[in-house]
């Protein structure tokens, strides 16, 4: 989001509302952090603990069977499962997919009301009360991690009593998605400020990271070279999802590629042709 589009939008806003719109320089930058996550696929067992933890932490409604069949289920983090090999020698591979908090996010440029924007700490933020539900962002997202609320969420007794008070219950007609547990980041910011110190490495743990039994998920500041996350992100096993789109994701995946594994040349050729046609 830059240059001509932003300048003209700002000019319109200033003309309507007067000089009360802050410029980017006025929006206080916070220490040049970039929150990010490293997901070690060699550790992931596909147990779905992260998915459950996320549902509980972020007041996500329960996905009943027909919601899933309608493809309107909401899971801010999901485990994608891929099969490798034929039946007797089949192996399951798992990729947890959540909002990639792209540095160059396709969802941010298409929102007509600036309900989604990039904050100074590198988070892709969804402002629920601005959202008018055009769903342009969800269509623009190559990772399919933005979810539209087709209904007001409901919880059966007694689950309605366990809602997290730090997270808004999203109403019908707006888009929602992973926030990197923004409420936990904000809490750590307030706590560290009260104690007059910086946020320590590992102090902020989104619900998925906290619940991962194999510590496949690591969260931290990718701009600070001393954090565990940024050190892992330098690994030679690193890759990012759909790298060729140039979205600059803040989620880095680690996966060892075994050079001795037999490559299925027939299928490989097919994939290549499909790629060229697309």
């Amino acid at each position: 989001m830059s240059s001509a589009h932003e300048a003209s939008a700002r000019a319109t806003a200033v003309a309507t509302l007067g000089e009360t719109i802050p410029t980017d320089a006025e929006v206080t930058p916070l220490d040049g952090r970039r929150w990010g996550m490293v997901i070690d696929l060699d550790r992931c067992t596909g147990c779905q603990a992260c998915v459950v933890a996320c549902q509980a932490e972020n007041n996500i409604a329960i996905n009943e069977e027909n919601r899933v069949l309608e493809r309107r289920a909401k899971t801010w983090i999901r485990i994608e499962r891929y099969w490798e090999g034929e039946f007797p020698n089949a192996k399951a591979r798992f990729i947890p997919v959540l909002c990639q908090h792209c540095g160059n996010a396709p969802c941010e440029t298409v929102c007509p009301v600036w309900a989604t924007y990039h904050n100074p700490e590198g988070l892709n933020v969804q402002v629920y009360n601005r959202c008018i539900g055009t769903r342009f962002c969800a269509n623009g997202c190559p990772y399919s991690v933005r979810y539209f609320n087709f209904w007001n969420p409901e919880w059966p007794e007694p689950l309605n009593n366990q809602l997290n008070p730090d997270v808004t219950v999203r109403t019908k007609g707006i888009i929602e998605k992973c926030t990197f547990c923004l409420q936990r980041i904000n809490r750590a910011r307030v706590t560290s400020k009260n104690e007059d110190r910086e946020i320590a490495d590992g102090e902020v743990q989104p619900a998925c990271v906290q619940s991962c039994p194999t510590t496949a998920l690591v969260f931290g500041d990718l701009n600070d070279p001393s954090t565990t996350a940024s050190r892992l992100a330098e690994s030679e096993r690193r890759y990012t999802l759909l790298e060729n789109f140039g979205t600059d994701p803040s989620v880095v995946y680690l996966k060892k590629v075994d050079p001795h594994v037999e490559i299925d040349h027939h299928h490989g050729h097919h994939a290549e042709t499909a790629g060229k046609h697309a």
């Binding site: 206080t28 904050n119 700490e121 402002v127 808004t168």
Partner: peptide, 22 residues
Amino acid sequence: MGDCQGCHRENSASLDCATCHK
């Protein structure tokens, strides 16, 4: 929101949406 923002601007406090909106 305007009431909060006015004060935040005067005191150079954060104007980022994510600071207050959850």
